[in-house]
């Protein structure tokens, strides 16, 4: 009974949650009314165009900024008031990391390792060697790609239960990117950790994500399992004469120069496409994630 209570106390809420989250800088609204629950064990890819508010959302989720409206929670605790017990369980890598540039990589790991009770020295050492990162060079003297990889090793070495990565692949070459995705996949498999990463490189998402969230102009347009994006959504193209009969779509609708229309449609609760899809002359395209992204975000 005690063990059960303790277990419940340890995991009282989802790793990350936001309620009616809104934020703005100097008059410009960056996030509007975001509701988000990220389930334990999921790998969420946060996708959106440049300036969609991805970084701001991630920072707000972790309590790194004070949102204008709403609140965010980390493992059930308000993000702005988390305690050391929760801090030990999370790791965050910002975009273009530059922290502690005046220390060597070895010094930085030595420093950070003292604070994380589960710090995995062997993993840090081996991965630095495997990824060919110089431990005795000043962090500030590394190239952006090297810095990003060092930060990723740092984040993974603390054995987090929640890993938040802001554009982790942006500065990485394809080989390093694959290495990172593999590491994320294995962690998710073995340790059951929750991963949230933002990206605009869609193929990364398709490999490793279990869920995706579309952020567009500060709003969350879509949040679903990644396979659903391919099975539940499609693009319907209607010729000019059928344009007015296009189904009402909230996700995306584009009119073309010749009067034809394409809309993003969704299967209903019984897994059927809207009736309009069966009309002669219309075309139904199952979309890859990248095409769906373009269709929605344009």
């Amino acid at each position: 009974m005690n063990a059960m209570l303790k277990d419940a106390a340890d995991r009282p809420g989802p790793p990350l949650a936001a309620r009616d989250l809104g934020h703005g800088y100097e008059g410009a609204t960056v996030l509007r009314g975001i509701d988000l629950d990220i389930a334990a064990g999921s790998v969420l890819g946060l996708i959106g165009r440049n300036g969609a508010g991805k970084s701001t959302l991630l920072r707000a989720l972790l309590g790194l900024l004070e949102p204008t409206t709403g609140e965010t929670r980390v493992f059930g605790k308000p993000a702005l008031a988390m305690d050391d017990g929760i801090r030990q369980r999370i790791a965050y890598v910002p975009q273009q990391p530059e922290a502690l540039a005046w220390l060597t990589v070895a010094q930085m790991f030595d420093y950070l390792g003292r604070f994380y009770p589960r710090w995995n020295h062997a993993f840090a050492r081996d991965t630095l060697a495997r990824w060919q990162l110089p431990a005795n060079k000043l962090f500030g003297k590394l190239s952006p790609g090297e810095r990003q990889r060092v930060e990723l090793v740092r984040a993974l070495a603390s054995e987090p239960e929640l890993l938040v990565l802001d554009e982790p692949a942006a500065a990485l070459d394809p080989v390093a990117r694959r290495e990172l995705l593999r590491e994320i996949a294995l962690r998710a498999c073995e340790a059951g950790i929750t991963v949230v990463f933002s990206t605009h490189i869609v193929s990364d998402l398709e490999r490793v994500a279990s869920d995706i969230a579309f952020l567009h102009q500060g709003r969350l347009l879509l949040h679903c399992p990644v396979d659903d994006t391919k099975e539940r959504y499609a693009r319907l193209w209607l010729p000019a004469r059928l344009g007015p009969h296009a189904p009402a779509s909230t996700l995306g609708r584009r009119s073309h120069a010749d009067g034809s229309v394409s809309v993003v449609i969704e299967r209903d609760a019984h897994g059927r496409w809207p009736d309009e899809a069966a009309q002669p002359g219309v075309r139904l395209d199952v979309l890859g994630l990248e095409d769906l992204f373009v269709e929605i975000a344009e």
Binding site: R59, L62, L64, Q96, E98, L112, R114, F115
Partner: peptide, 16 residues
Amino acid sequence: RVNTELPMLALLPGLG
């Protein structure tokens, strides 16, 4: 700056 030491310090455990 949001990509340097600030987030690291905010999330660093062990400081009470």
